[in-house]
């Protein structure tokens, strides 16, 4: 499924956070949204996922979801959003229970995604017993269990340490290779953008507007090969030069309580 944004704007009361945002993400592609803090990245994701009401412009999907899809627009959250009283398997089950799959299919789906995410041995563990990386794996397993058409990932790795981030990025890349879902991925980490994106959407400071859209010609799977090292380095520098000045300003800005 394709995601299309046309001239999208949003304001919290009198405070505009997004203005004239328009871009499209092709089926199976990953678009990474970056920008300084407070540029409306997460707001945009919530608008796309239908958790906020649209105000101006239009957000739409094109095409039909894949077979077996239970929840076309599916989130992965920064803080994992796991129910602390449910086990790993139970958290995955939450996304499935209301779809009347039948006990066998539900169990099969859970087992499948837990295996895919390396969680098979932790099915009965409670979230509090898991490391941050494992918790986010549960979040990802829950998302892919519903076979989403579009995954909306809101800084999914930013609560994790650098090493865990590396591991999870590799996991994500292999999952995308299998599932071919369309992905919108919000981050403030340029490394993640360079590693995971097919296109990087750079937003300006509040109110967020599109500053540049950078397409990366090398497929995600091949990006870490040595022959692309120079390209990756250049990309990183280019993106940094785009947001550095604004990041500085944003950093010095007083918080709106």
């Amino acid at each position: 499924m394709q995601v299309v944004l046309e001239d999208v704007g949003y304001a919290y009361g009198d405070l505009p956070v997004l203005e004239g945002v328009g871009f499209a993400v092709a089926e199976g592609e990953t678009a990474v949204l970056i920008g300084p803090s407070g540029c409306g990245k997460s707001t945009l994701l919530n608008l796309i996922g239908g958790l906020l009401p649209q105000q101006t412009g239009r957000i739409s999907t094109l095409g039909t979801p894949p077979a077996g899809c239970l929840n076309p627009l599916t989130f992965v959250f920064q803080d994992f959003a796991l129910l602390p009283w449910r086990s790993v398997a139970g958290n995955v089950a939450l996304a499935l229970e209301h779809h009347r799959l039948g006990r066998a299919e539900q169990q099969a789906r859970i087992a499948e995604v837990l295996k895919l995410c390396g969680l098979s041995d932790f099915a009965d563990a409670l979230p509090k017993q898991l490391s941050g990386g494992m918790r986010q794996r549960v979040g990802i397993a829950r998302a892919i269990a519903v076979k989403p058409a579009v995954m909306l990932m809101d800084e999914p790795l930013s609560a994790l340490d650098a090493q865990t981030r590396e591991l999870l990025m590799e996991d994500l890349i292999s999952i995308w290779a299998r599932e071919r879902t369309t992905t919108l991925y919000v981050t403030h980490n340029l490394n993640e953008a360079v590693r995971l994106a097919d296109q990087v959407v750079v937003l300006s400071r509040r109110p967020g507007r599109i500053k540049r859209i950078v397409s990366i010609p090398v497929p995600v799977a091949e990006r870490m090969k040595p022959e692309h090292a120079a390209l990756v380095k250049n990309l990183h520098d280019e993106l940094w030069s785009l947001i550095k000045a604004e990041a500085q300003v944003a950093d010095r800005e007083m918080q709106h309580a």
């Binding site: 996922g49 239908g50 958790l51 239970l70 929840n71 627009l73 599916t74 989130f75 959250f77 803080d79 959003a81 129910l83 009283w85 939450l94 996304a95 229970e97 209301h98 829950r142 519903v146």
Partner: peptide
């Protein structure tokens, strides 16, 4: 709140959110 938003994002109805998220929470 994020747990409730999560449940909404997976399409749970209000009734299900009350019994599966709010009550145990």
């Amino acid at each position: 709140r994020n747990l409730i938003r999560m449940a909404q994002s997976f399409g749970l109805s209000t009734r299900m959110i009350v019994f599966k998220v709010i009550l145990p929470g």
